[in-house]
Nucleic acid binder design. Structure first.
Lengths: 212, 212
DNA sequence: CTCGTGACCTGCGCG
DNA sequence: CCGCGCAGGTCACGA
């Protein structure tokens, strides 16, 4: 495998790219995250993470134009995909540090693998709902159900990177994006190098991405 | 690896004695068999489950001296290890006849792979907890979790034999032991031939075990 | 039946 | 150098 030098080339840009208007989902209580420990499924109700509290005043202004919308996005983390993440295991391991920081499981004790459903918006505004849980056996946090469909639709391969963001305010909407492995040496042909799925479907950002 | 002529007839029916105790997996909900709810991490330390039930009457008497202790042990069966049993599959297949006789899975229906945890004491008094379950796919009973650690610690190799015993009374304590393959032709040097791990560290009991 | 996927488990590599 | 994180597996079950 030749992955592994994902660089670290920081992409300092993807979240700041212009454009975009995602439909503000009408429903206010955007619950993606999860239901409190006991409600299984359909998180529909509250939850309590801490990202959504205060409704940011500054919000309603002209800042609501695309640009500012981007500005309001806050990158959480990204992960270069391992072969297992895109293989038949149908799961994405979320590095513990990030999982515990951004997607804390209910009640502060993670013993419960009841699972939550997290909904993310992709670059086209499409929603992706993933089951999120903690596996005590392997002591790791994973996205399971729904993940393989995402991998398939986006044609993700090992070495590609997935990006996780959240919106400041607005109930903490969550976003997911991806980009092709940065280095050359594409395993399957490489034609796609530089493609990203972030600010809009099919948008190429080669220059920005490979240079920078 | 050239073993494989395990005489399939080592056991000449050991005593029949019903009874047996295995601890049913602690929680039905079945996730995490280890770690009781709150303790996360390090499963190894946390048991305390089964042996604490009732402290059985017979216990405190003179019967507790080594000799009578041995007398009260009842051999269940033994199995010459196959290459798979000691390989990376991390499981020990328990011959169906013995499994069903001594470790019947709950409720009489074995469809349920919920699994049990069986705790065995070894020759040094150390406890080994193995997950025991039925694999429908291979139609066999197996010890999985924990098994590979046992193989490693005891340095077991194909052809070596594992022994299973239980104590009469006392809630049916379970014991596990082993001995090196009896025939010569040791694969790795043979210096250990004849060694057993059974009644005490380093004690040899070859005569008793192989005859009888 | 197969496929998807939830639930297990463990070796190994890295910090 | 050792413990944890996680990559890479297996198996079972429901659709």
């Amino acid at each position: 495998m030749s992955i592994n030098h994902f660089s670290s080339t920081p992409e300092s840009f993807w979240w700041t790219q212009p454009h975009l208007t995602m439909e503000p989902t009408p429903k206010p209580p955007q619950q993606h995250l999860l239901s409190p420990p006991n409600t299984h499924h359909h998180p529909a109700t509250s939850f309590s993470l801490n990202l959504n509290h205060h409704h940011d005043d500054v919000d309603g202004e002209e800042r609501e134009n695309p640009t500012s919308l981007e500005v309001n996005k806050e990158p959480m983390f990204e992960k270069p995909l391992t072969p297992s993440d895109v293989g038949k295991l149908n799961r994405l391991v979320i590095p513990k540090q990030h999982a515990e920081k951004y997607f804390p499981l209910g009640g502060g004790d993670r013993t419960d693998s009841a699972g939550l459903l997290l909904s993310f918006e992709d670059e086209s505004g499409k929603f992706w709902r993933f089951r999120y849980s903690y596996w005590t056996s392997s002591q790791s946090y994973v996205l399971t159900k729904g993940w393989s469909r995402y991998v398939k639709e986006k044609r993700l391969d090992a070495g590609d990177v997935v990006l996780f963001e959240r919106h400041r305010g607005e109930g903490g909407r969550l976003f997911i994006g991806w980009r092709r492995r940065s280095s050359a040496s594409a395993v399957d042909g490489g034609a796609m190098a530089g493609t990203v799925g972030w600010v809009g479907p099919g948008v190429l950002f080669c220059a920005c991405l490979s240079c920078a």
